[in-house]
Design a protein around this nucleic acid. Structure first.
Length: 543
RNA sequence: GCCCCCAUAGUCUAGUGGACCAGGACGUCACCCUUUCAAGGUGAAGAUCGCGGGUUCGAAUCCCGCUGGGGGUACCA
């Protein structure tokens, strides 16, 4: 057998070695079929198949990302056509959630991933929604029965339940006992005539072993006796994942399946299914799981898990992508900040780690902060902050309204505050005193610096106000010089003067540098707020 | 229980037989800057490379066993 890619480039990487292994194996097992695959060496077709059962999980987002990076990054670099297929796996009617599909597509777009074929854009293998493809699966299951690779199982859920309990009691490995695999044709006919409902199960080979070639883990060997006769078609006529997945991946000419590690146990069954159909097995790569901080599955208990939640908290898609890319993949062990373009330029499946990774919220926050403070352009950042301010009622513009005065004002505020924004959702609170005329109520006691008292503070503020009335805070340098002069004249440290002014003007003990803060707040408000603070000190109990 | 995957600091990782008494990052701590808080800068602590056997002149790197963690064990995906 001559491999079609044998004339290809030199420099065998671990990746190509693995590809070669797999190809050889495939050729040995599916020689006839391999001949039909002319040209497939030149294209890499991957897919991301979410279930519309709720919001998109970060783990799913990472799987989607890696698939996208292979299709749009690695494949083109290797001179191949890459394509990403989005397929909706909605074969479990009981878990279907209305609107979930739309939500998933929307969040994937926000994340920055695009696909070539899918329910929204169509494509040559439409429909891309499994519930609309049931005939295909039923036909496939029927074919399998005909050739003896699958069988009808009339066992009731009650019997299966009882069987499981019995096995549990006897401490035997649970699993279907294959009772219906040996039903005679007469028995089957009787059941069918009686209208008994049934599922279709795969007749898994009982002997030998199945080797699964995984691009990330190498060879995985499974003893066939340990594998089950999985249900292929359910009583309701819908397929299980196992059948739908194999049928669709073949039909859609998927060449590489990248999915979560949780699929490893059933991978050998899938391989056997492909063989039963006489189809070539796509390449397989099982991504490492994303674990929760304490170990185990990432769940609500640890924090957000859905991409929608991260979005609404004000995580940037860039930061999410950067962080997620580095969960299980690395460029060189040094690079932390890497753009989408650079990911496309450098991502390779061969550098995906096989070991599970713990989701670290603190590091994600760091990435977000870093992108806000160091990567995003000011206009861009401002546009992303605006929706959060609007939601909070602080401004009344839309993000696209970048020409108006109010946007310019928000940009000004953003400029001096961006080094302390970690999540966009924190912006409203940080910006409140810049954007509102009136300060939120605050404790007058916070006006008084440590080691000072009310009377002194009041006098200090009065002197400060007098000074500020004779200049404009628009000139930061002048304001600073004058106030430092004042502090010196009063025989106090600059901080003893700055702090009361800061609190008087912002209502807080924390703010950006005093003079940029004053400048942005403006003369009128600065003066009136200091005057109010002086009144507040009067009103309080003298101490 | 059975099957399978994984194993470098609290976390993400670099490392593919010798330049590693293990490099980067998050986190932590200290100091610097300083009008507060951040940001930034500098530095520190933190890994017997899970343990035990091999192979080899030489192992984080290869092999075996064990342990630990994780996944699967559904007419869910």
């Amino acid at each position: 057998m001559i491999r079609p890619d044998e004339t290809g480039a030199a420099g065998a990487s671990r990746y190509t070695d693995r590809l070669d292994n797999r190809t050889t194996e495939a050729n040995r097992n599916d020689m006839t079929d391999a001949l039909d695959q002319t040209g497939s060496e030149q294209s890499v077709r991957v897919r991301f198949p979410p279930s519309p059962t709720g919001l998109l999980h970060v783990g799913g987002a990472r799987t989607a990302l890696f698939n996208w990076l292979v299709a749009y990054g690695q494949a083109p670099r290797e001179g191949k056509d890459g394509a990403l297929i989005l397929r909706i796996e909605d074969t479990d009617r009981s878990r279907f959630v209305e609107g979930a599909t739309e939500g998933i597509l929307d969040i994937l777009n926000w994340f920055g991933i695009h696909w070539d074929e899918g329910p929204d854009v169509g494509g040559p293998h439409a429909p891309y929604i499994q519930s609309e493809r049931t005939e295909l699966y039923q036909q496939a299951a029927a074919d399998l029965i005909e050739q003896g690779a699958a069988y009808r199982c009339f066992c009731t859920p009650e019997r299966l339940q009882a069987l499981r309990e019995e096995q549990q009691a006897k401490k035997e490995p649970p699993g279907y006992d294959r009772r219906c695999r040996s039903l005679s044709q007469d028995e089957i006919d009787v059941n069918l005539a009686a209208g008994a409902s049934f599922v279709i199960r795969f007749a898994m080979p009982r002997e030998g072993e199945t080797i699964v070639h995984d691009l990330i883990r190498g060879e995985m060997v499974f003893q066939n006796v340990t594998l089950e006769d999985l249900v292929l078609l359910k009583t309701d006529g819908y397929p299980t994942y196992h059948l739908a997945n194999v049928v669709d991946d073949h039909d859609m000419q998927v060449t590489l399946i990248m999915r979560g590690e949780e699929w490893i146990p059933t991978a050998p069954v899938h391989v056997q299914l492909y063989r039963a159909f006489g189809w070539e097995v796509p390449q397989l790569a099982h991504m490492p799981l994303i674990l929760a901080p304490g170990g185990g599955k990432l769940s609500k208990r640890h924090g957000s898990t859905a991409m929608e939640e991260f979005r609404s908290q004000g995580y940037l898609p860039e930061a999410m992508m950067n962080y997620l890319a580095l969960l299980g993949w690395s460029l060189d062990g040094e690079t932390e900040i890497i753009s989408k373009a650079e990911l496309l330029q450098h991502f390779t499946l061969e550098r995906v780690s096989p070991s599970p990774a713990t989701f670290d919220y603190a590091k994600l926050r760091w990435f977000n902060q870093y992108y806000i403070n160091h990567v995003l352009e000011l206009d861009d950042l401002t546009e992303r902050v605006v929706p959060f301010l609007v939601a909070d009622g602080l401004v009344g513009i839309t993000a696209s309204d970048t020409e108006c005065e109010e946007f310019a004002r928000v940009r000004e505020v953003t400029a001096i505050l961006k080094d302390r924004i970690v999540l966009l959702s924190e912006a409203p609170d940080l910006m409140r005193y810049f954007l509102q005329d009136e300060l939120d109520p605050f404790d007058p006691a916070s006006l008084v610096p440590k080691k000072s008292d009310r009377a002194t503070t009041k006098a200090t503020l009065q002197a400060g106000l007098a000074a500020l009335q004779q200049l404009s805070v628009a000139n930061e340098a002048e304001a600073e010089a004058k106030l430092r002069e004042l502090a010196e004249a009063q025989g106090i440290k600059a901080g003893q003067l700055f702090m009361p002014i800061r609190v008087a003007v912002t209502g807080r003990t924390e703010s950006p540098g005093l003079f940029e803060t004053l400048r942005v707040i403006g003369d009128d408000r600065v003066r009136s707020r200091i005057a109010s603070a002086i009144v507040m000190l009067d009103a309080g109990d003298p101490d």
